[in-house]
Amino acid sequence: MRSGLLAAGLALATAIGAGSTLDAAAAEPPAPAATTQPEAAGPALTPPARLPWGAVPQQRRGSATTRPAYAPKGRPPSAAAASLAAPAAADPTIHYMYGTGSQTVAVQQAYANFTVAKPTVAQQDFHSLAELAMLSSDGRQIVEVGWTVDRDVNSGDLNPHLFVYRWKDGQGTCYNGCGFVPYGGAATAGMTLPAGTSKQFGIVHNGGAWWIAYDTNWVGHYPDSLWEGRFTVTGQVKFFGEVAAATQQPCTQMGNGLAAEDANAARIGSASYPDSTEPVRLVVRATGGVYSALALSDRTFRYGGPGAC
């Protein structure tokens, strides 16, 4: 059943628009014979000397490759979708639900501490993830980094994996490829992450590219040329958990499976904009009616839940 839903979802991947649930949409349908080689996207670029949280990154270890993957991906939830009850989806086979902290702010750097978890993903559902998304003012250009439990993206593995993703002009691309240039450090898009830990995830615009940071490493970058130089600063920043499900009452867990009211629930904390004097003031909410989100401060919130089963 689930494979049929995935095929239907991918076939409708271009149906992205204002009427879709929470501005969510499936990624583009699979391209033939995705290569494991990094895609050429201009001259080699150099990352900042320090990670967004101020640490000196580990040294580059040589070249790296990633495996692009095509699978459903929800667009970061729209600030306009404030109610718990989501409107009907443009693609009725995929339902996206969120626990989100968001802010309208113009920055070029953002990061937070994320609980890395291993939520149970029901066989008929698609994924459970957590991420940081940097969006243009109109929400159509996006860079994302986070962890995901997704059997399609991760070749059947249900451990959490590091992922990157981007959107151009409101259209999704693919996980861990589609213009992404790996850096060659100890962290690689697609790698397995340690569940039950707290790790820093960040994005920085520097030297003609959006650079992705994880823990003590640069992961790689998306060159500005992928957007023809039109996306170099945010209009919105979002931190969130996301479940992509086959029904509106999924059995899939979000976060670590605990509701936000539980003190041990997954959290996204100490959100920061290192290049800005604008204070972090996240607006925290849950959408979909199944999961929860709870603000602990302007910069930290808990989110998640066991699902509807």
Rank of each mutant, 00 (worst) to 15 (best):
A7F: 10
A8S: 11
A8E: 15
A8T: 12
A11K: 02
I16H: 05
I16T: 08
T21W: 01
L22Y: 01
P30E: 03
A31S: 10
A34G: 08
T36D: 02
T36V: 09
T36F: 00
P43V: 13
P43I: 15
A44R: 09
L45G: 07
P47Y: 09
P47N: 12
P47V: 13
R50V: 13
L51G: 04
W53V: 06
A55G: 04
A55F: 03
V56Y: 00
Q58H: 10
Q58F: 12
Q59L: 15
R60S: 12
A64K: 02
Y70D: 07
P72S: 15
P76E: 12
A79V: 11
A79L: 12
A79K: 02
A79F: 04
A79G: 08
A80L: 14
A82N: 02
S83C: 11
A85Y: 01
A85F: 04
A85R: 10
A88P: 01
A90W: 06
D91M: 10
T93S: 07
T104Q: 07
V105E: 01
Q108R: 14
A112M: 07
N113M: 10
F114N: 09
P119K: 00
P119W: 06
P119G: 12
T120L: 07
A122E: 04
A122K: 14
F126G: 02
F126W: 07
A130I: 08
E131F: 05
A133Q: 08
S136M: 10
S137I: 14
S137M: 13
I142M: 07
G146I: 10
G146W: 03
T148V: 08
V149R: 02
D152R: 02
V153S: 01
S155L: 11
L162I: 09
Y165N: 05
Y165W: 08
W167N: 04
D169G: 07
G170R: 02
G170V: 02
Q171N: 13
Y175I: 13
G179L: 12
P182G: 09
G185N: 08
T188L: 09
A189Y: 04
G190L: 14
M191V: 13
T192Y: 00
L193M: 13
A195F: 05
I203M: 11
V204G: 01
G207A: 13
G208A: 14
W211K: 03
T216I: 08
V219K: 03
P223L: 07
S225W: 01
L226S: 08
F231M: 11
V233I: 15
G235H: 07
Q236L: 08
E242C: 08
A244E: 06
C251F: 04
C251T: 14
T252H: 03
Q253P: 01
G257C: 03
L258H: 09
L258F: 10
L258V: 07
A259P: 00
A259E: 05
A260I: 04
D262F: 06
D262I: 12
A265V: 10
Y273K: 04
P274D: 13
T277W: 00
V280F: 01
R281V: 13
V283W: 00
T287R: 05
A293K: 01
A295N: 05
S297F: 04
D298Q: 11
T300G: 02
G307F: 02
